[in-house]
Design a protein around this nucleic acid. Structure first.
Length: 960
DNA sequence: GACATCACG
DNA sequence: GACGTACGTGATGTCG
């Protein structure tokens, strides 16, 4: 569409604004964007008529986002979208083959071109095009004009042809990758600064645009030559000096072709533009025009966002029938794009029902039977699934078809919370009796969000829902490391809908109400909405599991877990108060003594728990050398620093270290654990999070039972307090060296695999390989070094890290690493392959197919990228170990079912703790070992044996 | 609530 | 050549 054939294009701006040094001119490469959006984004079609609008959708979102930038620095003062006009350009006259090898424009993209122009104008931005010129030339002209007036310019594009425009005032922004391109990025890409980009492109050519360049010269060689000779003309003039025969001949023979190429790639900066720069000034969009457009496109979520942003428009008329659906991506497994938003999102809280009699409850249960699927959510008066009491149940059977069944609300409706009568409710026993058959019916799928919690509460009422799906775990299988899996955040991302927050109805802080105190009129919309959202999330995520190839991971290592973990959490472990109390007072005494010592050494009383005060005393008052500041400017007083100081013979640092040791043990363990003993069970019940790590590990909290001390003698004593019930015994079973075994398998390290098969001490073997010491003569210090290196490899080793850990020089550490790579070829390849996988896909995968998303792997900041690379190297190893443990845990309940009274209590990453009646310990050890050692099978046949050590004892300390 | 520190695998 | 780094977690106390 050319400028003069479309009366809407290139219209003057109603409010021209001169560009000056305070201006920020944003120029969008509209044509470039639409092609990229078309190929990169999932195909969307308007539901009403199948009109393809995916690229328009992406384009509109981008416009909106740019135009409502919140910071002054980022907000544009001038904004235009520049398009290619149809027809030939001056470049075709220079070189008739220019862009001749471009393929046909896809058919379903063509109708989207006029729509993007329309979107541009609807958002109040200028849409610019000119016959005979490409968008790039117009952008170049405007950019140079603005630059000359001292303005900042941002070009929205990732087209390398525009990189010649970059300067200290002009930067590019790739909105799809959210990457800024400035001078350093150009330097990275071309090996020269922006001012020499043209010379590089003239030599290297471009197969996409059919720019010929000089044969045999690519970007690397071109950069080499330009850096040596300065510019293209000099190079061509002195081409005879070049040593390499072929290169010299080509440069001479194709000199003219290089010059033509230069004319092709050089952007015109002197176009006599029809629309002056000042006319690009931003205008507020006309709400009527904008909403009409968005409505016609059926962009629901964007409509909502726009309305929220400009506070205009009303609900009526914009709520169309909907709308955008995504076409499936056949076999595609692209970079982990955010799930695109479905547009049929209308939440109608008025349709939610508060169920207060058994007839209505029966009605809802029948609906669940009719649909075969029901979202279930429990409301309780607390967050701890053992201490909390059930307050109500929510069900959802379809969009907006949800109900809340209050069961234990106190008087709040129509009375004060002390004197008011409780609202009308179905007696809990009656309601649960009615619900139980449906919840346990194997033909009805129950859908929950973090269903482990609900299962735990239901279990205390002897209800065991099955089968079930868990939306949190679906999201985890799909997006671990990329997105959070909380319901509110998912709802916002997927539907653009923020559910009522608990704080809104319960308040915050000390005055926060528990759910049973909330009036039904408020409780119903909140509670029913959670079930409604959960069911919708399920429908949205379920097909994605297959599309994104994580269905097996979800089904085998995620979905079965909540029931198993809920059972473990409910089991809890017995803790001996007396042992902890005695330790607590021991530690307190030790601390008191150390405090006196510290006061004396420092010459004043100070708070030993304050790193700030300590730093002042050590490095200020006492004037010790070797102090380092943290990034916030405080003195570092971590264990490493104090260790170094202690090694110089200084007394105070060691006293502090000892004091901290006892302070940690006392506050975090002896004192805190006692407070965590559940009054009903007399045991400690941790809570495991199934979806909070990036690698598939579980985490434990309230209290964390995965970090009970073991490495020091004092700390170990705390484990004496973890005991078996009378007449029972504890069994601890842990995988031996599972991560190193997995490393040997995935990196294919023959020497290491052989050692594991032979049952050789792996650290000694490593030491022997690296330092040439015979296994029989191995000394502890050498073995310790090798052990540190083995761990380092798993963590994505760096010379600095290893040096730090072993207290050796960096060059020495560097030599160790080099020698490790030589002795274990395969490691290097594994590391490179893994990093490359992460770069390509944005995630790495474990042996079992779990995806671990890695952020920052292509970041231009070396630190950020380095961190991401180490994560990428570690994640498949830690993740595979986690997968194996999950598989073992999932099989364990059935495996130990024959041992009456045997219970699984705890998981500590590579260890499981059981409680079993005395006399059955040997049976349990046998079964636990077999189950754990065989847990990778049949999915993966690990090429080294997995070995589990297990031991029974009356307390956790002795079980090791 | 951020930060520093330290417990675990 | 300089830059900061071991991987994954959660709980505690201090301090603004």
């Amino acid at each position: 569409m050319s400028a003069d054939s479309n009366p809407h294009n290139n219209v003057p701006c109603p409010h021209p604004e001169p560009v000056d040094k305070d201006s920020h001119v944003v120029l969008v490469d509209g044509s470039g964007y639409i092609f990229r959006a078309y190929h990169a984004l999932p195909p969307l079609t308007r539901k009403t008529d199948r009109l393809p609008i995916g690229a328009v959708h992406g384009f509109s979102n981008m416009l909106f986002k740019l135009l409502r930038e919140q910071t002054d620095a980022a907000r544009p003062t001038h904004f235009a979208v520049i398009f290619d006009a149809s027809g030939t350009t001056f470049r075709n006259e220079i070189y008739d083959a220019y862009k001749a090898n471009r393929s046909e424009t896809p058919e379903d993209l063509i109708p989207q071109f006029p729509l993007t122009r329309e979107a541009t104008r609807a958002f109040g931005a200028q849409s610019i095009e000119m016959t005979g010129f490409e968008a790039d030339d117009l952008i170049a002209t405007y950019a140079r004009q603005a630059e000359a007036k001292g303005a900042r310019v941002t070009i929205i594009s990732s087209d390398k042809d525009l990189m010649q425009l970059v300067s200290d005032r002009v930067q590019m922004l790739d909105t799809m990758k959210n990457r800024a391109i400035g001078i350093p990025e150009v330097q990275d890409k071309f090996g020269v600064g922006p001012d020499k980009v043209i010379d590089i492109q003239s030599l290297a050519g471009d197969s996409v645009d059919n720019v010929p360049g000089v044969p045999g010269i690519g970007v690397k060689t071109a950069a080499l030559l330009i850096n040596e000779y300065g510019d293209l003309d000099t190079l061509l003039a002195r081409a005879g000096e070049i040593k390499q025969n072929k290169r010299r001949e080509n440069l001479i023979e194709f000199a003219e072709q290089a010059r033509i190429s230069r004319d092709l790639v050089t952007l015109k900066t002197d176009i006599n533009v029809e629309v002056p720069l000042s006319d690009l000034a931003c205008c507020d969009p006309e709400p009527d025009v904008l909403f009409e457009f968005l409505d016609r496109m059926t962009f629901r979520t964007l409509t909502n966002r726009v309305r929220a942003a400009i506070g205009a428009g009303d609900d009526d008329g914009l709520r169309g029938n909907d709308t955008v659906v995504s076409a499936p991506l056949p076999g595609a497994d692209p970079r982990p794009a955010m799930a695109e938003t479905p547009a049929n999102v209308v939440f109608d809280k008025d349709k939610y029902e508060c169920v207060q009699d058994i007839e209505r409850l029966t009605h809802w249960i029948e609906r669940a039977y009719a649909t075969g699927i029901v979202a279930v959510d429990l409301e309780t008066d607390g967050l701890d699934s053992r201490a909390a009491n059930m307050v109500g149940v929510c069900l959802a059977v379809d969009d907006n078809e949800a109900c809340y069944i209050p069961l234990a609300h106190v008087g709040a409706d129509g009375g004060d919370m002390f004197g008011g009568a409780a609202p009308k409710q179905i007696p809990m026993d009656a309601a649960l009796s009615a619900l139980k058959p449906m919840l346990e019916d194997k033909t009805i799928l129950k859908v929950g969000q973090n269903f482990k919690y609900d299962l735990g509460v239901f279990a205390r009422h002897d209800i065991h829902p099955a089968p079930y799906d868990d939306t949190m775990l679906m999201s985890y299988a799909l997006y671990a490391g990329l997105e959070s899996h909380g319901m509110d955040a998912m709802s916002e991302r997927v539907f653009g809908h923020s559910p009522i927050s608990f704080k809104d109805i319960a308040g915050t802080g000390k005055a926060q109400k528990t759910f049973d105190q909330i009036a039904l009129s408020e409780a119903t919309p909140y509670a029913a909405e959670d079930a409604d959202v959960t069911l919708r999330l399920y429908k949205f995520y379920k097909p994605k599991l297959g599309q994104d190839r994580v269905a097996t991971v979800y089904e085998t290592t995620e979905r079965p877990l909540p029931a198993v973990i809920a059972m473990m959490e409910n089991n809890g472990i017995k803790v001996d108060r007396a042992v902890l109390a005695r330790l607590s007072s021991d530690f307190a005494q030790k601390m008191a003594g150390l405090e006196d010592e510290a006061t004396e050494l420092a010459g004043e009383k100070f708070n030993l728990g304050s790193p700030k005060q300590l730093g002042e005393i050590l490095f200020g008052k006492m004037g010790l050398e070797g102090g380092k500041k943290t990034k916030t400017g405080a003195w570092q007083t971590g264990a490493g620093v104090l260790d170094d100081l202690a090694a110089t013979g200084e007394k105070l640092p060691q006293v502090i270290l000892d004091w901290r040791h006892y302070a940690k043990l006392k506050s975090t363990y002896t004192d805190a654990l006692v407070a965590q003993i559940n009054p009903n069970s007399g045991r400690v019940h941790t809570s495991y999070s199934l979806a909070s790590t990036t690698t598939g590990r579980l985490s434990s909290s309230d209290p964390n039972l995965q970090n009970i001390p073991i490495r020091t003698e004092d700390g170990r004593k705390i484990r004496d307090a973890f005991i078996a019930e009378a007449g029972h015994t504890l069994v601890a079973a842990d995988y031996s060296q599972i991560e190193l075994r997995l490393l040997a398998h995935v990196a294919d390290l023959p020497t290491m695999k052989q050692a594991f098969s032979d049952g050789v001490d792996i650290h000694a073997l490593t030491a022997s390989e690296m330092f040439g010491v015979a296994l029989a003569d191995m000394d502890a210090a050498t073995r310790r070094r090798a052990k540190a290196i083995n761990f380092g490899i798993i963590y994505g080793i760096s010379a600095f890290g290893l040096a730090n850990n072993l207290n050796i020089s960096r060059s020495e550490a560097s030599d160790y690493i080099k020698s490790y790579f030589e002795k274990f070829p395969g490691i290097k390849a594994y590391m490179e392959d893994t990093k490359s996988e992460a770069r390509q896909y944005g995630y790495v995968t474990t042996l079992f197919g779990r995806k671990c998303h890695i952020k920052g792997i292509t970041d231009r900041n070396q630190n950020v990228r380095g961190f991401a690379e180490r994560q990428a190297i570690n994640a498949p190893i830690q993740g595979a170990a986690a997968d194996i443990m999950r598989r073992a845990m999932i099989r364990m309940p059935e495996a130990i079912a024959d041992i009456h009274g045997a219970k699984m209590l705890l998981q500590v990453h590579d260890e499981l703790v059981f409680e079993v009646p005395e006399g059955n310990a040997d049976d349990l050890i046998k079964i636990a070992k077999t189950t754990m050692e065989g847990a990778a099978m049949p999915a993966v046949n690990i090429s080294v044996p997995l070995v589990v050590d297990a031991k029974a004892a009356s307390n956790w300390n002795d079980a090791h």
